[in-house]
Design a protein around this nucleic acid. Structure first.
Lengths: 105, 105
DNA sequence: CGATAGTATGTCAGATACGACATACCTGTC
DNA sequence: GACAGGTATGTCGTATCTGACATACTATCG
C-alpha cells in the first residue's frame, strides 16, 4: 500500500495506522472503500472537466458546497447512494457509473 | 413500460400509477431505480445459485432474513450501499458489481 | 499586504436506513 | 387438513446520512 492511497483512505475517515492495522480491514471492506474512492474521483473529474465549481454542482444537486467537497474526498459521511445519484444527476450514464466501479484498483 | 417492470417498481416502494404519474420520475431517478433492481436481482441470483436460504445469507451478512428479502425486492428502505456491501461480502468482485450496474436495462 | 473565489473541515438537527421482531404468505409433504 | 421450511410484509428503536451553516484554509490578483 503506497502512501498516497493510505492518506486517501485516512481522509475518507478510515483509521489506517501501520500495516498491521490495515490488515484489520477485510477484503470486502477494502474493495468497498476503493469503489467509493473511484466514484468520488470520477465526480471530481466530471466537475472539473465541465469547469464547474462545487457551489454550482451543489445547486444542481440540491445540496451544499460542503457536501460536494465531502463527496469528492469520499468522506465517511458520504454514501455510495449519494455518489451514484449525484453522478446520474450530473449526466453520467448508468453504464459509465458501472465502468467506473468495475475498473480495477 | 410493461406490467412486470411496473410492478417491480411498485414493489420497490415507488408510486407508479398510470403513464402520466410515471413521467414524474426523472431520467436519473428511473436510472437509479433500475440500477438498484439490477443489483437486487444479482443478489438473488447469487443466493439461489449457491443454494442458500435468505436466513443463511442474513447470518453471513450479520443481518436478518427480512432485510435480505427487502434487498432482493429492491425495497425503498434498502440502499445501494447495503446492496453493494452485501454482494462484496458474499464473494462478488468489484468488477462483477460494476458489470451488473453497467449492463443496459 | 488585502480582497476575492474556491475548496476543506467541523458540527448539528432532522431525515433516512438499519437490524430485529412479529406475523402473514406460500408450497410442498405427510 | 396440519405441519414445516422458506419467503414476504409491517413496524419500531437506534444508528447513520444529509443539507445547512459557520469557519478555516489556499490560491490568485491587484
Amino acid at each position: 500500500m503506497d502512501d498516497t492511497k493510505r492518506s486517501r483512505l485516512e481522509a475518507a475517515g478510515w483509521r489506517v495506522g501501520d500495516a498491521a492495522d490495515f490488515l484489520e480491514l477485510t477484503t470486502e471492506e477494502a474493495a468497498f472503500i476503493e469503489l467509493k474512492l473511484a466514484l468520488a474521483d470520477y465526480l471530481r473529474d466530471m466537475r472539473v472537466q465541465h469547469g464547474w465549481t462545487q457551489t454550482h454542482v451543489a445547486r444542481v444537486l440540491g445540496s451544499s458546497q460542503s457536501r460536494v467537497a465531502k463527496m469528492e474526498s469520499a468522506d465517511a459521511s458520504v454514501s455510495v447512494d449519494l455518489l451514484v445519484k449525484s453522478l446520474l444527476t450530473l449526466g453520467a450514464s448508468r453504464k459509465q457509473v458501472g465502468q467506473v466501479i468495475a475498473r480495477a484498483a
